[in-house]
Design a protein around this nucleic acid. Structure first.
Length: 495
RNA sequence: GGCGCCAUAGUCUAUCGGUUAGGACGCGGCCCUUUCAAGGCUGAGAGACGGGUUCGACUCCCGUUGGCGCUACCA
């Protein structure tokens, strides 16, 4: 039997270092066993998935050197590798589940479900589907459908008994069925949810080993039920620990840069990042922690993955990256890396065009443009506060900026400008007053190259990080504040 | 709250019942050196707690505590 593994990211945002970690593990495992590693795009969330995100994910994983043998861009014998292109397949299997009784149609409205959960929580019961549509007769189902009520398909879960999942890393794990919810498998628009699509695809793509994030552990019983209902053998399964922030919470972009491309833009080498991530699953040989992909493939061992969620320690990454920079590159190769990192001639031209109008001596160039070649920028709260906005408006502006910029489909001048205008409107200030603190946050100075151009050149990842740091300088925003201000955004969007 | 996972220094880890608990990042000191890095040497620093099992527990079992995840027509 040939080993086949996969990484299955969802194109709903920036490629996450956690995805890189999971991909690396799957890659090493497959390659070590002479198997195949595939990439599958799980874009069954129609509202959040974007083609742009998918493209960036592919780019990021390529950059890291994790080449897949089958995938949406290169095809393969088990395609298509994009779930949105496999809808007929899921529909067919959903029908099969309906026919053999492993699943049922549910006509409950979202309002009814919300009320049900609220009631359960009020009564201190765990929220779960109550089985209302379970006993529906053929006639009732037909009547509902005739009435035009779109059904969802739910997984039928036994109300008693239990199941044991064998995790490669954790051993047998016990679940009582009465703690497993009757998940939706097919949404009312006919699209599958993760659970159905994932199981169907892993089987059809002949995946032998599923190594995924720990967040999926409690879904494993549902998947077990599906494999059984189809009469398929369940792949071997392992749940990898989640990467953490310094405070041990799940790595999140509120507290850290989490995008793979942020690290590229910051000037980390892909081999260093991959090496760093590999340290969580590959034991160093004779104390030497530096190793390339080939060495990691050779020495990889599931048994060496420690289950405590590792903190993403940027300091150690810095050290490793420094070693790659000075030990693995001769001056020529180093310069070439710098060239690629800086963006090449084209970028230099664009920067020069902006700077030319603003200098009196060529030697002014360095100080004026330095922020474009820096990672973070030194700023103080006082510099941020120098304008007309009060503290709350200031923090609000940064929270809104973070949210708006994250949501932009394309990172380009007009979209950024429109975003800033929106912020000014919501905060109730003039654009010029809102823009000033952004200058400080992004360029490190109140007068600099034009803001929007600078932001385009800097890239979304670096801008986000600088805004995040600025917000932090101002004392940050509480969860409640963030939520409240984002609501303003929704209200504004609705208006 | 319910269910599940996890638990060696600040951080990443080694140890698979018997070790002075090893290494790395970070931190301190010393050396090298025109400065700073880099490099070399070196120092401080760990088995969450309580019960068992055992001749002997970091290692096995139970409990406590703590952290994390899930608890959606998101993945």
């Amino acid at each position: 039997m040939i080993v086949r593994t996969r990484v299955a990211p969802s194109p709903t945002g920036d490629p996450h270092v956690g995805t890189a970690y999971v991909a690396l593990v799957n890659y090493c495992f497959a390659k070590q066993h002479g198997g195949r590693f595939l990439l599958r795009i799980e874009d069954t969330d129609r509202t959040r998935s974007t083609a742009a995100s998918e493209a960036v994910i592919l780019e990021a994983l390529h950059w890291l050197g994790l080449a897949w043998d089958e995938g949406p861009d290169i095809g393969g014998p088990h395609g298509p590798y994009r779930q949105s292109e496999r809808l007929e397949i899921y529909a067919r299997y959903a029908r099969e589940l309906l026919e053999n009784g492993a699943a049922f149609r549910c006509f409950c409205t979202p309002e009814r479900l919300d009320a049900m959960r609220a009631e359960q929580i009020r009564n201190k019961r765990p929220p779960a589907y109550d089985g209302r549509c379970l006993p529906l007769t053929q006639e009732e189902i037909a009547a509902n459908e005739a009435a035009g009520i779109p059904p969802v398909v739910r997984l039928r879960v036994p109300r008693e008994g239990s199941v044991t999942i064998d995790d490669l890393l954790r051993g047998p794990i016990h679940f009582d069925w009465n703690n497993v919810d009757m998940q939706v498998l097919v949404k009312s628009d006919g699209w599958p949810t993760y659970h159905l699509a994932n199981v169907v695809d892993d089987h059809l793509m002949e995946i032998t080993h599923v190594m995924r994030g720990e967040e999926w552990l409690s879904s494993a019983p549902k998947h077990w039920l599906l494999y059984r209902a189809f009469g398929w053998q369940m792949p071997q399964i392992a749940h990898l620990p989640l990467l953490r922030n310094a405070d041990k919470s799940k790595l999140s972009k509120r507290k850290n840069p989490t995008g793979i491309l942020f690290y590229r833009r910051m000037g980390y080498l892909p081999e260093a990042l991959a090496n760093f991530l590999g340290l969580f699953s590959v034991p160093p040989l004779d104390g030497e922690e530096m190793m390339d992909l080939a060495a990691m493939v050779e020495r990889f061992d599931l048994k060496h993955i420690s289950l405590g969620g590792p903190v993403f320690d940027v300091k150690k990454l810095d050290w490793l990256n420094g070693r790659y920079l000075r030990e693995k590159l001769d001056v020529k190769a180093f310069v070439e890396r710098v060239r690629v990192w800086a963006g090449g001639e084209d970028v230099i031209d664009r920067i020069a065009a902006l700077a030319q109008q603003r200098i009196e001596r060529l030697s002014d160039l360095g100080p004026l443009c330095a922020f474009l070649f820096a990672g973070r920028v030194e700023i103080t709260a006082d510099q941020l506060r120098a304008g007309k906005l009060d503290d709350e408006s200031l923090r609000k502006a940064f929270v809104l900026a973070l949210a708006i910029f994250d949501a932009l489909p394309e990172w380009e001048f007009d979209a950024i400008a429109a975003g800033v205008a929106r912020i000014a409107e919501i905060v109730g200030a003039k654009v010029r007053d809102v823009v000033r603190p952004f200058y400080v946050a992004v360029t490190g100075s109140p007068q600099s190259l034009p803001l929007y151009d600078s932001m385009v050149l800097l890239g979304r990842d670096l801008v986000r990080e600088r805004l995040r740091v600025a917000l932090e300088r101002l004392g940050g925003a509480t969860g409640a504040e963030t939520e409240r201000w984002k609501k303003l955004l929704e209200a504004d969007a609705a208006a």
